[in-house]
Nucleic acid binder design. Structure first.
Lengths: 223, 223
DNA sequence: GTCTATAGCGTGATAGAC
DNA sequence: GTCTATCACGCTATAGAC
């Protein structure tokens, strides 16, 4: 009895914390805010969590592990015979869909991960790191299969891809023009095919010229 | 006399604030931290700034206006005859170089922009918005010139590109394998040419199949 | 113009009633 | 197990010495 109901309330507090952290950030969110959102009182939280730091740590864990787990499982469940490019596409689409579905825990994660005390962040780093390696491996395997060009560093490519998705959290809500799925279409086309017009592909030779034109950035501060 | 020296100290305080905000965030950074870094005392700051909010607002402005101004100027100074793709390349390379040069003000901006009170963020939004429009216009012009494919939404493309660059702030320091310029090379190749191996380009047809395989994301929370 | 003392407030956390 | 009262602390901001 006791454990069952207590666990429910614990979950309720965690959900409330995610919601509050999501739009106030870590420092600005008070335990009173969380308690009100959860329908209880600040002092009562201490029966379920030892400290604010413990609470936020659990929110962080829920925020990352879910996306990482679901994407990983999805990929693992695909038939072995599937093409590597198709596999990458599915993974990217799944990731984007999960990242943008506006889950309080995932959103809270991106809002506060850079705000929590350094030791918490360090202790929590393993999940995102493993997820990053998972993406790097997907790219490497596609390269090994000869389906993705091998002259680009797999780690950089994976980080650029994830970066685009993550930043989308900041602007996606502004525009009702595209669904998550349409957004994924654009990102996939852009990623695999590039943005150059095919006929103008020889223009790419000019990239080298472009490079030489950039001088070292001025160190002068804005005045 | 008075104004000259006072202005110098003001600048010193701003630089100190950028440095402190950069690695403590907004709420966690105290005026005492800033004062110590600037070689003065917390109370003294109030001779130069009316409040902590005023101080952070000026740091934010310095953080964005510099990158936006330098990239915009660089592009404006290019010969009119230059190809649109080359122009885009130069802009992207300049942006990346500035964003990653680890200027305290720019880094502080990305660290704290999501932490400051909403009214400050709203008041400060004009510079980033104008910069976003600038990028969208670059893409649109390249599309109009027939150098970039026109079937991708210019706004989305520009946001994806900026997203990759911004996220690079989070991981670029970890790896000494590439210089900023080499990173820009990879991003440019990826962006313009795509990551598919040319010979495997017909695999792109499978993207449609990939799409249909993704079921709606489960709403179940991690347990 | 710059520093010191301190007011005033809100926070995380605790102790103990019930 | 849950709520209430309260402590101790650190913060922004101010007032006034010099």
């Amino acid at each position: 009895m006791k454990t069952r109901k207590a666990a429910q309330k614990r979950d309720k507090i965690l959900a409330a914390a995610a919601k509050v952290f999501k739009h106030k950030g870590y420092a600005e969110a008070t335990l009173n805010d969380v308690a009100l959102e959860a329908g209880t009182f600040a002092g009562s939280l201490y029966y379920y969590f030892a400290s604010k730091e413990d609470l936020v740590e659990e929110v962080l864990n829920l925020g990352t592990s879910r996306v990482a787990r679901l994407v990983t499982e999805k990929v693992a469940a695909l038939p072995k015979t599937i093409g590597k490019v198709e596999l990458l596409s599915i993974a990217l689409r799944t990731h984007l869909a999960l990242a943008l579905e506006r889950d309080d825990f995932a959103l809270a994660y991106w809002k506060i991960i850079d705000q929590v005390p350094a030791d918490i962040r360090a202790r929590h780093a393993s999940v995102p790191r493993a997820y990053g390696r998972f993406w790097k491996r997907l790219i490497e395997q596609a390269q090994a299969a000869g389906e993705v060009r091998a002259d680009l560093d797999a780690r950089i490519v994976s980080l650029m891809l994830l970066g685009s998705s993550i930043y989308a959290l900041n602007w996606f809500h502004e525009s009702g023009r595209y669904s998550v799925d349409e957004l994924a279409d654009i990102l996939l086309k852009m990623t695999f095919e590039g943005i150059s017009k095919a006929e103008a592909a020889d223009n790419i030779a000019t990239l080298k010229t472009a490079k030489s034109r950039v001088s070292a950035p001025s160190r002068r501060r804005a005045d």
